[in-house]
């Protein structure tokens, strides 16, 4: 347990990206959500740690760390709720995936094969971060693990699917970004105009399905 500031403390469960560590983080997060700790403002679970924000006028670091320590003891790596599997259609390559040729070259595959390989496994949502609804998914098949762009792009289109090392993710809205963009989905990950603004949650599963540009345009039209 390490103080991040006067109003936040980080509880670490490991230093790597792995399933067991992340399950511990999410079990601990669920326990904290349930516990109703006095002065607690919010909790941010990540790959390997959870940061608890509190109001230092209502509680103090020593008290909150004692409350949290009791909960870490009980945190076990069992999923706290059944995980949802989301099917996400992706138009790989072309105008949608400007970095697919580079990723394919890195993997010694054709661009089409690289797209198929990316869609061949089911990914876990390890965490959300970076921007509203941005999922950090893992882990990509080893040949596709390509480092970030040396210089981030100023503009990445909404729905872009990217790779950064062993991670893959989806940009919910247009933004700058340094991940290698291999495709784009018409699925809207974040919208305030629906009952559930954030489509994905940590612990969920994501299955990508390759689609052609034509189907992408058609699905995008239906979303609009």
């Amino acid at each position: 347990m390490i103080p991040l500031s006067e109003f936040a403390v980080t509880v670490e469960f490991g230093a790597t990206i792995d399933l067991r560590t992340n399950e511990l983080v999410l079990a601990f997060t669920a326990a904290v959500d349930q516990a109703g700790i006095s002065g607690l403002l919010e909790i941010v679970p990540t790959y390997r740690s959870a940061t608890v924000y509190f109001d230092p006028l209502l509680t103090d670091a020593v008290t909150i760390m004692k409350d949290l320590r009791a909960l870490t003891m009980n945190a076990t790596a069992t999923p706290s709720r059944p995980s949802l599997t989301h099917t996400i259609p992706v138009w790989y390559g072309g105008a949608a995936g400007p970095d697919l040729p580079d990723v394919a070259r890195h993997a010694r595959l054709t661009p089409e094969e690289a797209g198929e390989l990316h869609a061949s496994v089911t990914y876990r949502v390890f965490m959300l971060g970076f921007s509203p609804g941005f999922p950090y998914l893992g882990t990509v098949p080893a040949p596709l693990a390509t480092p970030r762009l040396p210089t981030p792009r100023k503009h990445v289109a909404a729905g872009s699917v990217g790779i950064a090392g062993s991670q893959t993710g989806i940009y919910p809205q247009a933004s700058p970004g340094g991940w290698r963009i291999i495709g784009r989905t018409p699925v809207v990950l974040f919208s305030l105009h629906r009952r559930k603004p954030f489509l994905l949650a940590p612990g969920d599963q994501v299955q990508f399905v390759p689609i052609e540009e034509e189907e992408f345009q058609q699905l995008s039209g239906e979303q609009a």
Binding site: L4, S5, T10, A15, V44, T46, S49, T51, M127, Y136
Partner: peptide, 11 residues
């Protein structure tokens, strides 16, 4: 670099 975790204002 570290495996991504929470940051806050003032970090």
């Amino acid at each position: 670099e570290i495996v991504s975790e929470a940051v806050c204002v003032g970090s």
